[in-house]
Amino acid sequence: MAVGAFLLTVFAVVPWLIHVSGRWDFYYTLTSVALLSIASGGVWLTFYIGRINIGQGAFALAGGYVSAILVTKYGFSFWVTIPLSGLFCALLAVLIGLPILRLRGVYFAMITLVLTEVARLAALALPITNGARGISSIPLPGELSIFGLTIIPDFSTIGNVKLAFYYLATVLMVVSFAGLYRLVNSRVGHLCRSLQQNEELASSIGVNIAYLRVIAFAISSFLGGISGAIFVAISRSIYPASFPVKDSVDFMLNCFLGGLGYVFGPMLGTLMIYFGWDLLFTTGRFQLLIYSAILIMLIVTLPNGILSLPLFNKREADK
């Protein structure tokens, strides 16, 4: 029921509202929210195995560059680069995760924060990423067809590109969160929770904790990668500063705000933070101050996130 209402809102009501109100700019906003929540969903999964991940910006950046480079330098179809950038980030996450996932708490958080900065510096230094000038004038996504059957038309022939990107982002968001929901409610999710609560006990009952941690981190980074790739397709450019440390921190805050115990927490958190920040725009130079104060208050008063409010939990129980 709730799921049906959500899907209807995302895929029909919102486009209709935008159509009648003529606020086309909202497509861009909501597309961003959808993509950011995909990346935040990944961060949430690392939280779910008990790790504070402030490094998702690095993977979004890496995913973005992989897609941009494959499209501009090697003539790949954008559609193929979505899974490829995700897989590249997953592989990267395995290599980086093997040593660093042994760390816990603040130590892991710090290393991942550094990762975001390292990614930026790498993008500046590497020849293939074109340094500070980045990669620009990336073509719009072309046609996606299987056996001559057109599944998605060439974006440059579509009248309403904003709507097309909106659908692309929201469909991916729905698929990602459905995937996460399934994971959390399967035995895999229960094992992740066992890791979060006590790694020693988990290994005493035979759980390969190192393996499970890496898998979760790889999935997390996969989601960061695909979201970065689509961002790049929308802005048609990427620079070393496209995903700064602030983004990494926001991905984490989105999870905190929505609620670490709820799969759909990061989606709600992203929506609230994105709009909250925009609404505060009118307050000018106090924007950051008010924003931070509200966040701190929310985290103090609702340590388990907005979804822990009784209002939401009744609904959860109904399901």
């Binding site: 929770r193 609560q197 006990l201």
Partner: peptide, 14 residues
């Protein structure tokens, strides 16, 4: 070969 723990060790949120 499976051990239990001296300090009470369980998955406390389950």
């Amino acid at each position: 070969v499976v051990r239990t723990f001296q300090e009470t060790t369980i998955f406390k949120d389950m």
